[in-house]
Write a protein that binds this DNA or RNA. Structure first.
Length: 747
DNA sequence: CTAGGGTTAG
């Protein structure tokens, strides 16, 4: 395009100056002055209008921009382009696309704008589609936009393909591709690529530093930083925030003091760093001493107070904040929500002027956490643009409150689902004891080509453990090995418990031994695994190994080892361990420990001692303890103590059939038939029925439910049949499970 | 007056 310069006579140069002034005022955020300048102009030209549109659009006033666009006397191509750019910056892809379709003619600029609009919004396939229609593909700008778009969606390989294909590359192209690696934690590839680059600017170096920061390799980050020829503020801040985020506050401070010019971002990063380290006073000192504050400074302080549990301080600051924004307010809301102060949270929420998705979701999640699902739903319905997180929050809420039927409803209604949606369903099922449903969803997920993560795998294993579904558990283990989650503690601990609950305790120990670094949960799982399988002495052996290695046992460890002793009849050992727990480790015994002890004494036939123990324990015995005593009485045919235990149990669990049956049997064996009759009458009076709980939910009539009073044998067979039908199959290159659907209509 | 790569607050 040729630019024809008019002679600088009188008005022409004035208009030019005024146009420039509008743009400049806009860039420094002085919108009102820009508007005044525009309004005062007597002879506006098209560029004036375009400039004003751009100022409005860049300051979030997209509707005002559109108004000018509609009103202006003469539009040129740039006007249309500016308007599209405005919509793009304000995330209104749809409006941008509408203009793109309507406009009379387009230039390369137009195409670039529309393509970048799509890439910014993550709509890469649309961007690519447009790109393929682009008449002139020489210009690298569109290519670059696409590459970075793919990179932000973790589609690194596609980005690389474009990079290799593009005819003309510039430094930005190389940097975009480098960012694809560094942003996706592919530092090996990134380093290789970086070495290949002939030209590097400070952006390239900064990308490397940031990449290393993201994988928490601060040593390499610092090494690279030191080799930057001309580090800029961004370089300094990147390293500084890296140290701050990883808790290395002293290093961060050093960088902060060394850096030649500090900007507001560096001050803010220091506040965050101090707050993360609970150094509230140091953070406050920075906050008070900094030359200027922006809303991020205030938010960092408020957020820091919230993280450190100082809600009142946070609130105080929020009230003082000059221009409260959603981010700060949301921080406050989440603080209240974490402390179950739902009414305070709501009060802030109601004050928020323009709520964003995070704000809505925090509040909805708050109600969900408090079990107030009806209010959560009410808010959800009010939420203007519901995103995936909002839907997932509802699922998690329903799952937590045991309403899996409602969770299913929500899940089915969703058009887009992500990994979190699936995991929330699967973990919801396992948490609510609906293990077959958990497996069904695990399978369905694989069929849709979704990759499971550590949470999916762990929940799948927990389901297998509870169904004693060893074949499936083994297949899941194969998938895990291929997935790279083989050393994840959450997963390995679930594996240990799966094998032990399926009776394969030696396999459980093998998994334990194959795990590079185990934690207390792993030890506990192994010990209680041995206990569960009746190998009391082995459980004690593991416990001793733990002691030798200097690992401190916790409450759960003792529940495991004590129950092991009781199952194996190691009475003296159990009593000694109980003493060890309370005296050496100063662990206060809880209900479960007492139940173990009562069980231990009871099984050994020392019923009088057990009963005495119950009466002398400092916490009030509940169902577990009385149940242990009742069981022991049945075993040793002690009707007197049995009756006492049963009466207590009836108070705690008035509708649990097995308690009545146990007592009735004890009386029967003692020949006390009138007592037997009394128990039966009691059952009738209290309407204790043998109605079992449904142990899974029927989903789309594909699964036949079974009931908990089916005999164990029938159940095992049924589950096995179901599970054999379900063939887990891992492809060698991919670990997405490719599984046949559940089919149980074999009758 | 309109386009592409990097940094901070949720």
């Amino acid at each position: 395009m040729k630019r024809i310069l008019k002679p600088m006579s009188g008005n022409g140069s004035l208009v030019f100056k005024q146009n420039t002034r509008i743009t400049q005022l806009g860039k420094s955020g002085r919108i009102q002055e820009a508007i005044q300048t525009f309004k005062n102009m007597s002879n506006k030209n098209t560029v004036s209008w375009n400039s004003m549109i751009s100022v409005y659009a860049k300051n979030g006033k997209i509707n005002d921009a559109r108004h000018l666009f509609d009103e202006m006397p003469q539009k040129n191509l740039v006007s249309w382009n500016t308007m599209i750019s405005g919509y793009s910056h304000n995330d209104q892809v749809h409006e941008a696309a509408k203009l793109f379709d309507e406009m009379p003619q387009r230039d390369n600029f137009t195409w670039t704008l529309m393509i970048t609009c799509y890439t910014r919004n993550g709509e890469l396939d649309k961007a690519k589609c447009l790109f393929d229609m682009l008449p002139d593909k020489q210009d690298p700008v569109c290519w670059n936009a696409l590459i970075s778009g793919y990179a932000k969606c973790q589609r690194v390989e596609e980005a690389r393909r474009l990079f290799d294909e593009m005819p003309v590359k510039n430094l930005v192209s190389w940097n975009s591709m480098l960012a694809a690696y560094t942003q996706n934690e592919l530092m090996d590839m990134g380093l290789k690529f970086f070495v290949q680059m002939e030209d590097k600017d400070v952006v390239s170096w900064n990308l490397m530093v940031h990449g290393f920061v993201q994988v928490a390799d601060l040593e390499s980050a610092s090494l690279f930083f030191n080799r930057i020829p001309n580090p800029n503020v961004v370089s300094w801040v990147t390293l500084l925030s890296g140290y701050a985020k990883t808790g290395k506050i002293e290093e961060a401070k050093r960088i902060f003091e060394e850096m030649p010019e500090k900007n507001i971002i560096s001050w803010n990063a220091m506040i965050t760093g101090y707050m993360q380290n609970s150094q509230i006073n140091d953070a406050l000192k920075i906050f008070k001493g900094m030359p200027e504050k922006n809303s991020a400074s205030w938010t960092a302080m408020i957020n820091g107070y919230v993280r450190n549990g100082k809600l009142e301080k946070a609130r105080e600051l929020l009230e003082q904040m000059p221009s409260r924004n959603v981010t700060a307010q949301t921080s406050m809301i989440s603080g209240y929500v974490q402390n179950m102060r739902i009414d305070d949270a709501r009060q802030i929420f109601d004050q928020v002027g323009s709520r964003d998705a995070v704000c809505w979701n925090t509040m909805i999640g708050g109600y969900a956490q408090c079990g107030e699902m009806s209010e959560a739903i009410r808010l959800f319905k009010q939420m203007p643009r519901k995103n995936l997180v909002a839907w997932n929050t509802l699922i998690a809420g329903f799952a937590q409150s045991g309403q899996m039927d409602k969770a299913i409803e929500i899940f089915e209604e969703m058009k887009d689902k992500n990994l979190v949606s699936w995991n929330s369903m699967i973990s919801g099922f396992t948490q609510n004891g609906l293990f077959l449903n958990a497996l069904q969803y695990f399978v369905a997920m694989g069929k849709q080509g979704r990759k499971p993560d550590q949470s999916t795998f762990a929940c799948g294993l927990i389901a297998c453990a509870n169904l004693a579904a060893l074949p499936i558990g083994k297949k899941i283990q194969n998938l895990i090995l291929k997935s790279g989650y083989g050393q994840d503690l959450y997963v390995t601990n679930a594996l240990i418990s799966m094998y032990s609950k399926c009776g394969r305790i030696s396999k459980a120990e093998q998994v334990f031994r194959d795990t590079e670094t185990v934690d207390i949960v792993s030890w506990n799982s192994l010990i209680s695994g041995y206990a569960l399988n009746g190998y009391g002495k082995e459980a004690v052996r593991i416990f001793e190994e733990m002691e030798v290695k200097g690992i401190c046992p916790d409450q759960v460890t003792f529940v495991g080892v004590l129950s092991a002793c009781s199952h194996a009849g190691l009475i003296d050992r159990g009593i000694k361990l109980f003493k060890l727990m309370t005296e050496t480790y100063s662990i206060d015994p809880v209900e479960e420990h007492y139940a173990c002890m009562v069980d231990l004494l009871g099984r050994a036939g020392k019923l009088e001692e057990a009963y005495k123990f119950v009466n002398e324990m400092p916490v009030r015995a509940n169902a577990g303890t009385w149940g242990a005593l009742l069981g022991a009485c049945r075993m040793h045919r002690n009707a007197d103590i049995g009756k006492i235990a049963a009466e207590k149990l009836f108070k705690y669990e008035p509708h649990k059939t097995s308690n009545y049956v146990l007592l009735s049997n004890i009386h029967a064996e003692a020949g006390r038939w009138n007592e037997v009759e009394r128990v039966r009458t009691l059952m009738k009076e209290r309407k204790v029925e043998k109605q079992p709980g449904c142990s899974w939910i029927e989903v789309k009539n594909r699964i036949r439910p079974f009931f908990s009073d089916d005999s164990a044998e029938t159940r095992t067979t049924e589950v096995c049949e179901a599970l054999t039908l379900l063939t887990l199959h891992a492809r060698s290159t991919d670990f997405v499970p490719d599984i046949e659907p559940f089919q149980l209509d074999h009758g």
